[in-house]
């Protein structure tokens, strides 16, 4: 196909959008709403994911040893744990440090009560490894393995925290995927509807084209351009909106809610949009293309 013919069809595609203003506008608006919501859920998902990951980083498994193990034996156990794929890092906590934590946790503000234990560390057999995981869902498997290491007396795990975080993560993914699929299906349906209207409005023109000797691609191309353009416009507009809204929210929360901003660390806008921009554009263009192709196949027997 000649470039001039292709460009003519591109112009015709945009002319179709203009001729079919109201339907095109409705499709662009729906696409905008869908991609906007997609962006909102994606941003929420990314931020929740980031928060869950930072929460996961604080979930640790505590490993206690048999009494009387030598330093080198303890180090060997530490190395063996560290070598596991699921392990992020291993931290050795000596009996003294364990007692310091205990004092801080239980006797904070009443340090004099702890004085009675002076020179008699009640945690003397409580030196341990704090094992931090890359992914808390692998905690059970790791604990079973550690329990099998000779010299390990006891392993404490925070099963509930791990389960909650894992389940929460899964739930967010399921909700996210479910909503996105519904939204995209609605957008595809509306684009298809617009193309169908476009075909019926231009039925006479199509009939003339066919009688004059137009090839199938020539007849179809403007409609494909129309669908893709609607998808493209419908994804650029919400991205611009989201960029403003997301940046605005971060700024607002940081400036007005000190407590909240210290608890929640937002993923920077550029990190979110690095993925969101290409994914949204591909989705918009892809839905526009697929929506118009399916419609043409169904309604335009060239």
């Amino acid at each position: 196909m000649r470039i001039s013919t292709f460009l003519y069809n591109v112009r015709q595609g945009f002319a179709n959008i203009w001729r079919n203003k109201m339907f095109s506008l409705a499709s662009i608006a729906t696409m905008t709403a869908c991609i906007f919501l997609f962006g909102v859920f994606y941003s929420l998902g990314v931020n929740f994911g980031s928060m869950v990951r930072s929460a996961e980083e604080n979930v640790a498994v505590t490993v206690f040893f048999d009494e009387g193990l030598s330093d080198s034996e303890i180090k060997t156990i530490g190395r063996e744990i560290q070598s596991r794929e699921a392990v992020e890092r291993v931290k050795y906590v000596s009996a003294e440090e364990a007692w310091d934590y205990m004092k801080e946790d239980f006797f904070g503000g009443n340090e004099e009560l702890a004085e009675s234990f002076a020179d008699d560390n009640p945690m003397k057999n409580s030196d341990n490894f704090e094992v931090y995981l890359k992914d808390v869902s692998q905690q059970d498997e790791l604990v079973t393995y550690i329990k099998g290491i000779p010299g390990v007396r006891k392993v404490n795990q925070s099963e509930m925290a791990a389960n909650i975080l894992t389940d929460f993560n899964k739930l967010i993914i399921y909700i996210f995927v479910g909503i996105i699929v519904i939204l995209l299906a609605v957008a595809a349906f509306l684009i298809s509807n617009t193309i169908t209207v476009g075909i019926s409005v231009r039925r006479e023109e199509i009939a003339i084209m066919k009688l004059i000797g137009a090839k199938d691609t020539f007849v179809r191309q403007p409609f494909i351009v129309e669908g893709v353009a609607i998808g493209l416009i419908g994804s650029i507009v919400p991205l611009l909106l989201l960029h403003m809204v997301y940046g605005g929210i971060i700024k607002y929360v940081t400036e007005n809610f000190n407590l909240l901003s210290s608890l929640m660390v937002f993923v920077p806008v550029n990190d979110v949009f690095r993925v969101l921009v290409p994914v949204s554009l591909i989705l918009g263009v892809g839905i526009g293309f697929v929506g118009s192709r399916i419609t043409l196949k169904r309604h335009l027997k060239v």
């Binding site: 023109e205 009939a207 003339i208 004059i212 137009a214 020539f218």
Partner: peptide, 24 residues
């Protein structure tokens, strides 16, 4: 006649050539 009502005389005739992908 079956002319395209939204295009002028020139465009209606040129349309037939565009359809067969004639050079500009």
């Amino acid at each position: 006649f079956r002319l395209l009502p939204d295009r002028n005389v020139y465009e209606n005739v040129a349309f037939a050539m565009r359809v067969v992908e004639a050079p500009k």
